[in-house]
Design a protein around this nucleic acid. Structure first.
Lengths: 111, 111
DNA sequence: ACATCAGTTGGCGAAATGGCCAATTAGTTG
DNA sequence: CAACTAATTGGCCATTTCGCCAACTGATGT
């Protein structure tokens, strides 16, 4: 794998990595239904606000969320609508895994 | 976040986590164009075979890949065609991030 | 049986991640 | 200005991840 190819996959992996945490995934799901301030998300997640804030900064750094300060609150919103499509695919992975009892699961066709 | 919700997002995050590594992402991309044995992937990735083997077992455990031993080689294949759809979405995230100069990036509509 | 090649597994050290607490910044209100 | 709330940041520690090496398993060939 040459340096350029390596760099391409590193960038992509960084975005997936940002999504690959239960709390972050949950917050993305919540935000897909509308913006929320940190204190709301903190209550929904049920963790320390500092923890939630760090999770949000990870998602923001990955370009998935946008933040806007209004008054005393900071509101986060989902920048990329298609992110929710991930979940459908993830569910498909789950289904194919449970169906795969006899090793005859469908194999990916060439794209 | 109640226990059931927590469990749901943990399962989903585990799958994203499996994909969230440059080498693993690269291998999934390669496998989307057809099956490959470990030795071929090892050469393509350019790492130790033990490292590649462990990466493959992570993807297999997540239900993303299937493996089949034929003779001396073990062939891995992509079980979930839709996984490649991830990449299109990821690219969209990348685009929206670079476009976002004036803080006017498109915000996700409710689903 | 022995050597060889493909692959997996265990172990080790280095680095990254996650979560809480404490300290700090920044609006808001009295 | 002082008190309060929202949010971020730094620090610390436990856990996980990553990648190489070495050892082991299994099929193939001589």
């Amino acid at each position: 794998m040459d340096a350029k190819t390596q760099a391409t996959y590193e960038v992509r992996a960084r975005i997936l990595k940002a999504l690959a945490h239960p709390s972050r995934l949950f917050m993305v799901d919540v935000l897909s239904r509308g913006e929320r301030c940190v204190c709301e998300l903190t209550e929904l997640v049920g963790a320390d606000m500092s923890t939630v804030s760090k999770h949000l900064s990870v998602l923001k750094a990955a370009g998935i969320l946008a933040d806007e300060k209004r008054g005393m609150q900071v509101y986060y919103s989902l920048k990329v609508p298609c992110v929710m499509g991930f979940f459908d695919c993830v569910s498909e992975v789950l289904t194919s895994r449970t169906v795969d009892r006899d090793g005859k699961a469908p194999v990916c066709q060439r794209r």
